[in-house]
């Protein structure tokens, strides 16, 4: 089967290329230009070479310090929500009904949080968790637990993590549910004949079959949590102090609050590179794990 590959079809993608050029490449080039210069406004720029990068990557400077701090917070945030959402999502997926009238109802309920816009989720939790009028905050405080997300860093972190778990666990749950539904019944029957325990069934049948969807889920949740802006911004605005200032919030403060275009540009380039590398890594692992499995299956 030697079918000639005609790459001329790529010309059909030309309109998209033009649109992307205007809304992504030109701004990105501008960011690169800004990152090597300093400005005091009025479109007057002064050459600064790699000065901003030098400062950004030096943790002893103001800029470097806040960059590494918010990078660390962001990594911590992503790690926490992945550690909670993935196991919880799988568990919920396992518990969802597979047939009967409950299926449609459960699916709708599970999909609801995913349909709520980010800023609305933020506003809901901002009010829900307030200690004076919010249902959650008021109850927790009346139970004798000191909880105030505008004053306590720990309370603020618990609030934004819980909010993210509330918003996105459904995604993992629905993905695992779909993955579980695609496992043929024969596997379960064979396990039953072998007298496998529920745990063994999960470890040897369900989890391996879920690998692909879970990789996609982890990838989506990692990228999204690493770039999250709206929800923490609405709830805590990066506070109290800087305790929930993650990269995107810090970047906006730097670029639009202080209008330090040079350092903000350098920061966004490094931020961008980290995300690009993580994306590539996940994508490569994801596609090749499957390829490896297909190859072994063919050999077997």
């Amino acid at each position: 089967m030697d079918k000639p590959i005609d790459n001329r079809a790529w010309f059909l993608a030309l309109p998209v290329v033009l649109i992307v050029a205007f809304n992504a490449i030109v701004p990105l080039m501008t960011v690169v230009n800004y990152s090597v210069q300093d400005t005091f406004g009025n479109n007057e720029f002064f050459w600064n070479g790699i000065g901003w990068f030098q400062e950004l990557l030096d943790p002893t400077t103001d800029l470097g310090g806040r960059f590494f701090d918010s990078l660390g917070r962001n990594a911590l945030f992503s790690a926490i929500i992945l550690a909670i959402e993935v196991p919880l999502g799988v568990l919920v997926g396992l518990c969802m009904p597979k047939k009967g009238p409950g299926v449609a109802f459960t699916l709708v309920v599970m999909a609801l949080p995913l349909l709520v816009p980010w800023n609305v989720v933020g506003t809901i939790w901002q009010i829900f968790a307030r200690e004076d009028i919010g249902l959650l905050g008021w109850i927790v405080n009346h139970l004798g637990i000191d909880y105030n997300y505008t004053l306590g860093p720990l309370s603020a972190w618990i609030t934004i993590v819980t909010m993210d778990v509330w918003h996105w666990t459904s995604l993992i749950a629905l993905l695992s549910y779909a993955g579980l539904r695609s496992i043929p019944d024969a596997y379960y029957q064979a396990a039953k004949i072998d007298g496998a325990s529920r745990f063994a069934v999960f470890m040897t049948i369900e989890l391996p079959k879920l690998r692909r969807v879970l990789l996609i889920g982890v990838l989506l949740r990692f990228m999204d949590s690493f770039m999250i802006y709206t929800e923490p911004f609405v709830v805590t605005g990066g506070g109290p102090g800087n305790s929930t200032t993650i990269l995107s919030i810090d970047l906006v403060k730097l670029a639009l609050g202080q209008f330090d275009l040079g350092s903000a540009a350098a920061m966004s380039i490094v931020y961008n590179l980290i995300i690009l590398a993580a994306c590539w890594l996940f994508y490569t692992v994801m596609t090749n794990v499957d390829a490896d499995r297909d190859a072994t299956r063919v050999e077997a």
Partner: peptide
């Protein structure tokens, strides 16, 4: 003017575009 071009970044992007063009031609 808002794009704040410098000859250094201009050269950088021209090199990048050049490499991409060569790679595209090679691919063809």
């Amino acid at each position: 003017a808002w794009m704040a071009w410098t000859w250094q970044t201009g050269l950088f992007f021209m090199l990048l575009a050049g490499v991409l063009t060569v790679m595209t031609l090679l691919a063809i």
